[in-house]
Nucleic acid binder design. Structure first.
Lengths: 124, 124
DNA sequence: CTGAATCCATAATGATACTG
DNA sequence: CAGTATCATTATGGATTCAG
């Protein structure tokens, strides 16, 4: 959780909705988490799932997710570099939220052809 | 739904997670929706639940939610003005998401004393 | 009461190029 | 491969004032 990057608890102390949403806002966070539900992934592997995300942005989002304790970053000391990202326990506990988002999206905006193409549960 | 304010479907066509999250990001949207789960509310009534939200911001968020078809804005032609906001069917369908957020927040960040103080379900 | 108008500060995101 | 660095742009949020 590091230092409080989120000064967004100004709704009121009990507003946990705000707290929760604060961790998965940002343009790509929820997507990353969703993909990681399917298992460990490497940097470029994640990138390939969202080609419009620049490495700069991806790095930043990953770092924040890591700070918030939602994902785990594992670096292999080798050349070429290898870094793996996976969900922490806390991150995995967001599964209900992510699933709810997915279901809602599929039901209400899934107008773009078949909803999936990459259901994490059927990924490696 | 108006014109596509959300050009955030760049993950991939099936990425409904992104689509869904795109509708409730912003600093206050999820909070507003959460509160409206408890029933119709007026402008300042909503404001009082998040004192750090300026009228400008609240207006903007409400307009966007309206554009996206999540809430309904009802204006009474009278003086002083009276405007009521309530969830649309679509907005109400987000209840699972909002509940998931709330539950997660309560479980993982509810370190600020008793979680509620305003459970919409027990509001008027 | 429910906003709109204006101005401003900062944060978020993006493009591009480069590196160990 | 997994990032950094730099620059530019845009989006977001806020303060304040005004109005029907």
């Amino acid at each position: 959780m590091a230092k409080a990057r989120h000064s967004r608890f100004d709704c009121n102390p009990g507003c946990s909705v705000e707290a929760a949403i604060g961790l998965i806002d940002g343009k790509w966070k929820s997507i990353v988490l969703w993909h990681l539900l399917g298992g460990t992934m490497r940097f470029n592997e994640i990138r390939r799932t969202m080609l419009n995300c620049t490495p700069r942005m991806l790095t930043k989002q990953l770092r924040e997710l890591e700070e918030d304790g939602l994902i785990v970053r594992k670096v292999y000391a080798q050349v070429p570099p290898k870094v793996e990202y996976s969900l922490s326990e806390l991150g995995r506990s967001m599964e209900p939220i992510l699933s709810a988002l997915k279901r809602w999206g599929d039901a209400n905006i899934g107008l773009y052809g078949k909803p999936q193409g990459h259901d994490p549960r059927e990924a490696t």
